[in-house]
């Protein structure tokens, strides 16, 4: 068959989701944010939730998520996305409310809001992008930065005696009674992307069913901040990040509740 015979609308198996609009993303080449945006758009589209979805965007690289995914968005102050999402969900319980936060937003300045929203068991889905660095501001050390990792503010590597240990926030949130689903995923291979999509779908469904707070941590790369090519950043993540942040479900109580 010639390519012209194959390239017909009825033969499409994968394409750009309709909910992603035509704007070119401002993310660096190979950034995991792009993949996660695509997954969020696909999941909302598959759930038919375009008209009821409200995203709460963070401060950080994903601050302009409203430019790319064609649903309603609210911009929260730095780290305060779970607090804003709490209000939105309580006032509009029929809406699909999710936050989309990075590690500098969720695990640093927004730790209090995150922990208390999860402890109250707010019916929101939290998507947490963990790349171990402050990407937008130029690659400074974040609480999630690994020991020995070189960043702009730790040029000789993160020292435990000076900077403390990396903050592993998902197991912390899993201990709280309010969370119903805490999982850690990644988007470095096609198989991992499909698993991450399933996790996001389950988190969104939990939010609609009112089962409690769902947290989907995505271990990601920041090729610009890590000063690696996108492919090498993925290899580095598999080699180093997965040791500290192993991928898999941390908590899932939804099977008992439903």
């Amino acid at each position: 068959m010639t390519p012209e015979q194959i390239k017909k609308p009825e033969n499409v198996v994968a394409q750009r989701p309709a909910l992603l609009n035509d704007n070119t993303m401002h993310y660096c080449p190979g950034c995991s944010h792009g993949v996660v945006h695509k997954l969020v758009a696909e999941v909302i589209e598959e759930m038919g939730a375009e008209h009821i979805a409200i995203g709460v965007a963070p401060v950080g690289c994903a601050v302009m998520a409203y430019n790319y995914i064609d649903v309603d968005w609210i911009e929260a102050a730095h780290g305060r996305a779970p607090a804003v999402a709490t209000a939105v969900k309580r006032l509009n319980p029929s809406r699909l409310v999710f936050t989309y936060q990075g590690d500098g937003d969720l695990a640093a300045i927004g730790t209090a809001e995150t922990i208390h929203a999860a402890n109250r068991g707010e019916n929101i889905a939290i998507i947490f992008i963990n790349n171990g660095i402050y990407g937008m501001t130029g690659g400074q050390m974040a609480p999630t930065t690994l020991e020995g990792m070189v960043t702009a503010t730790t040029p000789y590597g993160r020292r435990v005696d000076l900077n403390g240990h990396h903050l592993n926030i998902s197991p912390l949130l899993a201990q709280l009674e309010g969370t119903c689903y805490v999982t850690r995923q990644s988007v470095h291979t096609a198989a991992a992307v499909r698993k991450a999509k399933k996790a996001i779908r389950q988190a969104f469904e939990n939010s609609m069913k009112g089962l409690g707070t769902s947290v989907v941590e995505i271990v990601s790369t920041c090729s610009s901040g890590w000063k690696l090519t996108p492919a090498k950043a993925n290899d580095w993540m598999v080699e180093h990040m997965f040791e500290a942040y192993p991928v898999g479900d941390i908590k899932n109580t939804t099977t008992q509740k439903s």
């Binding site: 499409v12 994968a14 750009r16 993310y27 080449p29 792009g34 470095h188 096609a190 499909r194």
Partner: peptide, 26 residues
């Protein structure tokens, strides 16, 4: 292009959603 099996791995990992994949089973 002749080697393509339409597995869509490229489109799945593409961060910018710029790949459309087609597949025909004869």
């Amino acid at each position: 292009p002749e080697a393509c099996i339409g597995c869509a791995a490229c489109a799945t990992v593409c961060p910018d959603g710029c790949i459309t994949v087609y597949r025909v089973v004869e």
